[in-house]
Amino acid sequence: MFEARLANGNIFKMIVESIRELVVDVNIDCSTEELSIQCMDSAHVALVSMSLSQSAFDHFRCDRSLSLGLNLPNVSKIFKMMGRDDTMVLKAEDSADKLMLMFENDKSGTIADFELKLMAIEAEQLGVPDTAYKCSISMPSSEFQRIVRDLQVMGDTCKISCTKEGLKFSATGQIGTGNILMRQNVASEKEEDHVTIDMEEPVELNFALRYLNFFTKATPLSPTVILKMSPGLPIVIEYPIEQLGHVKYYLAPKMEE
């Protein structure tokens, strides 16, 4: 059987929120090590990879690996009923035909429980190679969210270029062009406010702003976001979840025809 108890149930709720605009049906894979998700959007343009280590949980038992096939709109409806400070418990039998969810709150003494029917989902898995990227940028996730939101008024495509000058986001449309440049900045005492740029060689790639905006739904999970780019490769946008896991998005670039 599978049983997992997460004191800060809100983390799981935020993970669901970070994915649900990209995919509808998803398998959560449970192993003795972690809960993980790998899924693509229906257009096969973006891929989400989530991992939450068993060490994030107060209690974690997984007798044999299983996949929990979930419909995210339904899961999201259930999580709307979870309080901010609730503990979350997940339970499933090895047959994995239903998932028990419990939201407990010691302070108010409430226990809410839900039984969710699981689905068999045929998921296309992709082998994502471990690549050494030419540019790696760490920046405040709120800043990244603001930039990709603001640039939508200029156009549909965002050119992201990493040079010696810094990291530049550009969008061009009918009304003109907008550029936002982020320079390396490690002046603040708070590490989460730092912008660090590791560049081996300059990279310039074009991406759909619509997708970049979907990814910023993960902002509440992490104060920092890490962008990794190499010429002609999908960008990786990673939101680390403390030391316990991550939500990573891969987005295929737009290329010249």
């Binding site: 693509m40 257009a43 096969h44 343009v45 973006a46 891929l47 296309e124 898995q125 992709l126 082998g127 994502v128 190679p129 495509t157 074009n206 759909a208 490769l233 999908p234 891969y250 295929a252 670039p253 737009k254 290329m255 010249e256 025809e257």
Partner: peptide, 14 residues
């Protein structure tokens, strides 16, 4: 004009 690529051109099926 730019064309949106898909992930299949970059990643393999395992």
């Amino acid at each position: 004009p730019l064309k949106q690529g898909t992930l299949f051109s970059f990643f393999n099926k395992p």
